[in-house]
Design a protein around this nucleic acid. Structure first.
Lengths: 229, 229
DNA sequence: CGTCACCTTGATGGATATCAAAAACCGTGG
DNA sequence: CCACGGTTTTTGATATCCATCAAGGTGACG
């Protein structure tokens, strides 16, 4: 218990990445645990950012609604991901809404505390910077994808991304271990769910994927990757 | 010369925002000036991030090419903007290419120096964090825009954004003080320049804008804003 | 005054949204 | 076990938007 690390995922990408003992302890001490039931919202788009979350288990959906009420799903966040980082470190309203898609447990910090910690420990600040940078880079990638890839390529990308984030290998291939409706995929790609249904149907006929009611199994990742470009 | 600040834009958004004398001096001392002629590239997409730039005058275009050679223009950056911040603080390759669209002068820092400075001065780090966050937020906005707004709305948004970034008020309205081709607008919105030409033409007929060869004057910002949604 | 880049306009086709309807699936309660 | 209601999914017909291709016009500049 003494030299063993007290946190579970010392991997890169989190706030804890590569920290010395002292700042890591300070971070942990300041954190509280919270649980969110499926369907519960962590925060709403437009809210003042009072807390920063790090997912330790479960799944969170980040989405955004426009004035007309249409939804755009920005991404899912799983274990290790920092939810709310952009808003908290900027001290400006959340740009999206976060909803637990599964029972989810998180580590969380008050905005004031976390800002204080970054001020005190440059290493934490550097990690935050890296994480926010990752978020920016992802969104840059999405912008490029949306402007110069076709619909099929975008859907293939989303499938692969989901498979990577929440995929579970099974006999037939990689199953997306989370109830994904056609509408979900549509909101992630910026098309209607009719189109998603048609394209997925085509792929199933070709043996690329296997479809169920709220379930998708990727059977040929490489051919999908090829379609994704 | 003693209590007067030595930098020109102490406004927020830059690395210098709200700094005490000491870190500000350290930043300035570490910086070097560079000039880029029109058409020169500051860095290429995929390059290792060796330098961070802050534009002091001129204009830089950030764009991205996909494997098929099509261009996507991410944004223009003007005085005060930090170019390359995402990559430098993350120490991973530039996600886009930066090219001077006008004769441009910049302040620039080596990657190692700037990382060292953020380690030494939490205030600088906080500013960096805020800037990178801004970039992330912008891109989130673009993603939402691309997925749920139509072409007209996107073009209107781009026009308003340009007017805000590099606009100059004149008698007829707000002139975009930079030679913008239809193709430029197209690359920023993800459509072809044919479509841009048609839509702009329609707006000119309705008196919303006034068109010239490589020149656009926005005459009715509010109606454009309405179209932008 | 010729050349080149930029811009416009028209005709056409294809991809995708939209509208409408039905089918498959799931949980529930009789 | 079966019938029912709601959600998800499929499928079809049609319309719309936009890309594409083709051609000509317009202004800038040597």
């Amino acid at each position: 218990m003494d030299q063993a690390p007290r946190w579970t995922r010392p991997t890169m990408g989190t706030l804890f990445a590569g920290l010395e003992r002292e700042p890591a302890d300070a971070l942990l001490d300041a954190a509280t645990h919270r649980q969110f039931a499926e369907g519960t919202t962590l925060f709403h788009q437009g809210d003042a950012p009072s807390q920063l979350f790090q997912v330790s288990a479960g799944l969170v959906k980040l989405s955004r609604v426009n004035p007309e009420g249409e939804q755009t799903t920005l991404r899912f966040m799983g274990a290790g991901d920092l939810v709310g980082c952009v808003a908290v470190f900027q001290q400006s309203p959340f740009p999206a809404t976060a909803i637990a898609s599964k029972p989810t447990s998180v580590l969380c910090w008050g905005a004031a505390q976390i800002l204080d910690l970054t001020r005190r420990y440059p290493a934490i600040s550097a990690n935050a910077l890296k994480t926010v940078g990752d978020r920016a880079r992802e969104m840059i990638d999405r912008v490029a994808e949306l402007t110069d890839k076709g619909v099929e390529a975008r859907i293939a990308s989303v499938l692969l991304r989901l498979a990577g984030q929440v995929g579970r290998t099974c006999l037939a291939g990689v199953e997306i271990a989370y109830p994904v409706t056609r509408r979900d995929v549509a909101e992630m790609t910026g098309v209607t769910y009719f189109t998603v249904s048609r394209i997925l149907g085509g792929w199933q006929r070709q043996g690329l994927v296997q479809l169920g009611r709220v379930r998708i199994i990727v059977m040929e990742p490489q051919r999908l990757a090829q379609i994704a470009g």
